[in-house]
Amino acid sequence: MRTHPSDYLKAIAKREIAWLESHATSELLQHPLDNRSRAQKSPAAHVKLYKKFLEIADHILPQGELSKPVLWHCDLRPANIFVKNDRITSIVNWQHAWVGPLFMQARHPQLVAYDGEMMLHLPDRCEQPDKERDHEEKKRLQDQVERSLILRHYERGIRKASPLMNEIMSLPHGQTRHDLVTFAENTWNGDIIPFRKSLALVTRKWKKIIGPMPCPVSFTQKQVNAHLREGEGWMKHADFWESKQGLITRDGWTTNELYESLKKQYEEYTTRKASRKGVNPLRNLVWRDGL
């Protein structure tokens, strides 16, 4: 039986609703390292968002070839590719491979991925830095220019090598659509806030993304205000984890060599939070590898 690409999105929402209604309780929240919002702990709040998601699922993905089903290996890197005599002989670690719409699978390779502001040359003020701070600023701007130029070069090449990929990358509000689907997966053990933010953003930009058809869902001002209050604390958590990216996972795993240092940093971070909330900052510990 042929299916529509939107069935992929609906399957995500229906799966999550079924699990939430059958199994979700506050005791099952697997977040040993931070406090979550009130909505995060409410199964009903998650279900309400997924039902909104279902109402607009038919309109999120682009039509035609841009959403055809393709196989994606989500960990395709040199360590998983075997080569002999300049020929690929094997690709391993397929356990997380999956089939989904091309629009959801297409992305920039990690080598060229960059989502900051494009800057193709250094500003004039960086030509003769005269302070240590200016040197640091020049170094940051040089990195920004380098990453911008690499991405620009890749995008120019992809226009010729893969017009279909270029069309996806150039799709108006493509990132807004993509983020909504990405954040829809497993909000209970992940985060409800980015999913809710993405859903609200799609409703706000509906006419630009979809056209004149009225959006079937909406958020009240009260709901928006609640999101902003909860989102403020979430952003502080996000900033902390962003600063530790590559050193520790969100569920607390790190190496034995980094354990003591990161544990101390986390305890200092939670102590600052606890001083404002009156909670025990040491009730959670960072996990070591192998324990």
Rank of each mutant, 00 (worst) to 15 (best):
T3D: 02
P5M: 14
S6P: 00
L9Q: 09
R15I: 01
I17G: 06
S26F: 04
L28M: 12
H31N: 08
S37L: 05
R38P: 01
S42E: 15
H46T: 09
H46I: 11
H46R: 07
V47L: 01
L49F: 02
Y50K: 02
L54D: 08
E55N: 12
I56L: 08
D58H: 12
H59D: 15
P62W: 06
P62K: 06
V70W: 12
V70K: 10
V70Y: 13
W72L: 14
L76I: 11
P78W: 09
A79W: 05
I81F: 04
N85P: 02
T89L: 03
Q95V: 13
M104D: 07
P109W: 09
Q110E: 10
A113K: 12
Y114V: 05
L120E: 12
D124T: 03
E132M: 04
E137F: 10
K138Y: 04
L141M: 11
L141C: 08
R152Y: 11
H153P: 00
Y154S: 00
R156Y: 07
A161P: 01
A161W: 08
P163K: 03
L164N: 01
I168S: 03
T176K: 06
H178V: 00
L180T: 03
V181A: 11
E185C: 04
N186M: 02
T187G: 15
T203L: 02
K205N: 15
W206D: 09
F219N: 13
F219W: 11
T220K: 05
V224W: 06
N225A: 14
M235L: 14
K236D: 14
F240P: 03
Q245L: 14
G252T: 07
N256F: 05
E260C: 02
K263W: 13
K264F: 01
K273P: 00
K277T: 13
P281I: 14
P281F: 09
P281R: 06
L282N: 06
R283Q: 05
R288Y: 03
R288V: 09
L291D: 14
